[in-house]
Design a protein around this nucleic acid. Structure first.
Length: 637
RNA sequence: GCCCACGUAGCUCAGUAGGUAGAGCACUUCCUUGGUAAGGAAGAGGUUCACCGGUUCGAUCCCGGUCGUGGGCUCCA
């Protein structure tokens, strides 16, 4: 019998001789985007365009303009980079080079670090490789043979990788003289790379383990077209413009002083105002939802941290101090005093749920290398709450928290993703507890129709959790809110309540934050709004600009009246031209300028210029105040 | 904590084959009273180039260390 395969493609089945390749089928297909095709899928499995087909099935093509296609393109670009690196630096050893979210990287073991000049050289060599349109070839070798092959080349990392693969055969891809261990698939040839750029060098541990050898990682990216690459690079530029560290300085919001200490934020008047506004907002929102405000001490005796388990598990991240020969731990979390409040009297099931809220300032000794502007600091304030409830209240409580998060994020205009993390290998608590808590979290997510991902085994050792990650204006995500169930602390601290039958029961504790840390949230918020805060959050809402000093007293009168209506207003009475004052007010992104000259003085009016607009409108002060108040109430952007 | 890069006036940055440093903005004073994105002039400002050591007749520049910042890695109870 003549071996043949039946291929379903675009709703029709056709017979081909065995060994036909997707590339050949593509050539005779009526597809109009043939030049975009980088790989194929046979029965849902990705294969190379030049791979002989040996089984029947449904064939699809993968365009470079799809997420799957661009991943293949980037992965192949990483191989081309490795080829260039090996050609220029033969004594470098290759390790791994996957595609990642926005590009690719490849880790090398190099006797000396790469320099920016090296990157340029590598880029140039890559361009030559691409120009010469080298075909990619796939070879399948028995495992042992592949190990021998890489052993001879001295590529011990590859040998280690293959030794870890549980299969009889492994696939190798070559282009030119370069061969790499790889599952594939790959683009048909180096000519398919249209637009790439190497972006940075960095250190990275072999297999991501800090006990291992530090490797040299080169990051790059690759796009189907030059235009897309350009757009991406422009996005990076935009990100730099929005960087909260840059805007924090320009708008005079905060500083981090070497003198004071790394990871310690110093809030300047405008930044402190921003914080105050956020905190006021939070207090109100929590009171509305039945939380009680509490305040605990900044340092608590060391024994208490031993009792909670923090001393055993978290000591490295804590600060300690000794006063009158007594050891204290500076709090890295707020839960302990909340539990002391709970324990201060006997609780009935009628008291539950109890929701304690604290804008709690904590200190954590984060490793020096991880500090980053406002997003990772050593002292920060959490909008922290601990909910103590009976097991059957868990569902409603979690539902309430998720709704809280949804409401708040809508006000700021954030998009977000949710992740449910389940029981890790090392954990404490009974199966029943874990099941109940996990299902409570899951039920709430489903009830509220939330899209979420599950991270199996990624929960805390004391309970499952939901993490909410914000997407900022540049589609980067930041972990802010988190909801964690805890079975340990109520146990360790002997928390109980008296149930309806008179028996003592153990409450469940939920740790949760909505914004996370005020510092981090503000950092993300600054970038989200690009420093142009909505009126209700603007540290300065209105600035009064005078044209000549003839209107100085009128300006003072106007701003005083605005201040009487709790509008945050500044005056610019400097001996400068109006164009100059407007330019500065624009740079400071103040929502409203009120321009005051002889004309306005004469008619007792004001000329209002709104942020983002070129022209002014002349109105009466009362009318202006009314519209400001309305905008503030709406919290609109 | 690890790898790499960087650290010059309040800010953004230039500079020196190693001979004790400059611009713009900001600041002060004066002139200018000007209607929608930078009016003009003068002045002051660095305990001398993050800090500490070393090499040198001499170091901001070379070498070593420390601290800090940035990009990554790891971590993020």
């Amino acid at each position: 019998m003549n071996p043949s395969v039946e291929i379903l493609f675009q709703d029709t089945i056709k017979k081909y001789g065995q060994g036909i390749t997707p590339g050949e089928i593509l050539k005779e297909s009526p597809l109009t985007n043939r030049s975009e095709i980088v790989a194929a899928e046979l029965n849902g499995k990705q294969i190379d365009l030049y791979a002989p087909i040996t089984e029947s099935g449904e064939l699809r093509f993968v365009s470079v303009n799809t997420p799957k296609g661009v991943e293949i393109l980037r992965h192949s670009t990483a191989h081309i980079m490795a080829q260039a690196v090996k050609e220029i630096f033969p004594d470098v050893k290759v390790t791994i080079g996957p595609a990642i979210q926005e590009g690719f990287y490849y880790d090398f073991d190099s006797p000396r670090p790469f320099t920016p000049e090296d990157l340029e050289k590598i880029e140039n060599r890559m361009k030559e490789i691409i120009k010469s349109k080298l075909p990619f070839r796939k070879v399948v070798l028995p495992r042992e043979e592949a190990i021998r092959y890489f052993q001879e080349l001295g590529e011990n990392y590859k040998v280690e990788l293959i030794e870890g693969i549980d299969a009889d055969e492994v696939s190798l891809y070559s282009q030119g003289d370069f061969t790499d261990l790889c599952r594939g698939p790959h683009i048909p040839g180096s000519g398919a790379v249209k637009a790439f750029k190497l972006t940075k060098v960095a250190g990275a541990y072999w297999r991501g383990d800090e006990r291992n050898q530090m490797l040299q990682r080169i990051y790059g990216t690759s796009f189907p077209s030059k235009e897309e690459l350009k757009l991406y690079l422009e996005l990076l530029e935009e990100a730099k413009r929005r960087d909260h560290r840059k805007l924090g300085k320009e708008l005079d919001l905060f500083s981090i002083s070497e003198e004071a200490g790394p990871g310690m934020v110093i809030w300047h008047p405008k930044g402190a105002m921003l914080r105050y506004l956020i905190e006021e907002f939070e207090r109100k929102e929590h009171l509305k939802r039945g939380y009680q405000m509490v305040v605990g001490p900044q340092i608590l005796k060391r024994e208490l941290w031993e009792k909670s388990g923090h001393f055993d598990h978290y000591r490295e991240n804590m600060y300690f101090t000794t006063v009158d020969d007594i050891d204290y731990g500076i709090k890295p979390m707020n839960c302990l005093s909340h539990m002391i409040i709970y324990k201060s009297r006997i609780r009935s099931y009628r008291d539950l749920p109890i929701r304690y809220f604290e804008l709690g300032t904590v200190h954590r000794h984060e490793k020096s290398g991880v500090l980053h502007g406002l997003l990772r600091v050593r002292q920060f304030t959490q909008d922290d709450a601990h909910i103590l409830c009976s097991p059957d209240q868990l569902n409603d409580e979690i539902l309430g928290i998720i709704n809280f998060v949804k409401d708040v994020m809508a006000i700021f205009g954030f998009e977000y993703t949710m992740e449910l993390s389940t029981r890790p290998e090392k954990s404490i608590g009974s199966d029943e507890d874990w099941e109940r808590a996990t299902s409570a979290l899951e039920t709430a997510l489903k009830t509220l129709d939330c899209a979420y991902e599950v991270n199996e085994g990624d929960g805390a050792f004391y309970g499952p959790k939901i993490d909410i990650k914000l997407r900022d204006a540049l589609a980067r995500s930041w972990q802010c809110a988190t909801i964690q169930c805890d079975f340990t602390l109520p146990e360790r601290f002997g928390l109980t309540y008296v149930d309806s039958d008179g028996s003592r029961k153990r409450p469940v504790m939920i740790h949760r934050v909505i914004l996370g840390a005020v510092e981090r949230f503000l950092g993300v918020l600054i970038e989200h709004y690009s420093g142009a805060f909505p009126l209700w959050l603007s540290p300065v809402q209105v600035i009064a600009l005078t044209i000549t000093d003839r209107t100085d007293s009128y300006a003072r009168e106007i701003s005083e009246k605005l201040r009487d209506h709790e509008i945050r207003v500044e005056e610019d009475l400097r001996n400068e031209k109006i164009g100059f004052k407007i330019r500065e007010a624009r740079n400071l992104k103040i929502p409203y300028m009120v321009i005051l000259g002889d004309k306005e003085l004469e008619t007792r009016s004001i000329a209002v210029r709104k942020r983002g607009q070129e022209s002014t409108i002349t109105v009466g002060l009362e009318e202006f105040i009314d519209s400001l108040n309305q905008e503030i109430r709406m919290r609109s952007f």
